[in-house]
Amino acid sequence: MLRLYVLAFLAFLFLPILVITLFAFHSTTAMSFPFEGFSLRWFEVILSDDNFVNSLKNSVIVATASSIATCLLGTFAALAIPRLSKRPKAAFSFLAFAPIALPGLFLGIGLLVLFDMLGVHRSLVTVTIAHTLFCLPFFIETVRSRVTFFDADLELAGRDLGAGPFAAFRLITLPILAPTLLGGTILSFALSFDEIVITVFVIGEQSTLPFYILSAMRRTVNPTINAASVLAMGMTLVLLLVAGVILGMQKRRAIQQRSADREE
């Protein structure tokens, strides 16, 4: 019964995705069974749409900028939290985790009001700021899981040998954390690339890929939307897979190193 439950659960999660993927390759405009044949015509149509291409470019630009900003801000935050005393550490950890618990609707409305009060014109810049705020908690929690296994004595040893704070960070801490930082950055890119709820409130006249798909679905539902969704989903899955592999390898390496140190 447990195996049947697991299979039913997986089917519930992935069956809609499989249906969308299947009809993205449908040779006709029909969105129902029976399936009449495979074709790539809808991918050709969507890739020849200038609005789709521009939206895709905007999504890549925003995701790249927000993931870089998230990496810079989140790295120092993740390194600072373990060095705080007990009460400030608990408070900072709670505040850093809070955006994950809040619904995207609240964050979107809050940012919209904030930008309006500051007189900031909504554009891809405001979208980048919003996505950075959204991705930071995920990045910080990801890096903190690696910092937990980081031996601070290595950095102290470098300082004792004459290295300054920046040199110790650049030559010792950064190389050790680099795979985790890379995985967290890729994860942030994927989260930003797919974000739509917050984007709706802070975007201006330009469009990102999820916003383009949402706008197209308001007019009609046709196989080109399925094709666009499959392209977006494929890119996201590849990025998440790469991030998961990097983080998994780094975590196993850290656990093995910690076990080896205990044996010694």
Rank of each mutant, 00 (worst) to 15 (best):
A152P: 03
V45L: 11
P82N: 11
K86T: 13
G162N: 11
L231Y: 00
D116T: 15
L22Q: 09
F92A: 14
G184M: 09
T148C: 06
Q257D: 12
T236R: 02
S32N: 11
L177W: 02
Q256R: 15
M217V: 14
S39G: 08
F193Y: 06
T208A: 04
G183W: 01
A65Q: 06
V242T: 07
M233R: 01
P175G: 13
N58S: 10
A178E: 10
L154W: 13
R262S: 11
L237I: 08
G204C: 06
I140G: 00
S85Q: 11
A63L: 01
F35N: 07
I196V: 15
D194K: 04
Q257R: 15
F134H: 12
V6N: 02
T70A: 09
L247S: 03
N51M: 13
S123V: 05
R83K: 15
I172F: 04
L112Q: 14
V19I: 15
L22T: 02
F14N: 03
R122E: 08
C135V: 05
T180K: 12
F14D: 01
A11V: 14
K89H: 10
F134D: 00
L156Y: 14
V221C: 05
S67P: 05
P82M: 10
R41S: 06
S93T: 15
P175N: 13
G248N: 13
R144V: 03
L171G: 09
A254N: 14
F43L: 05
L237R: 01
T236V: 01
S259V: 08
G110Y: 05
V62Y: 03
R3D: 11
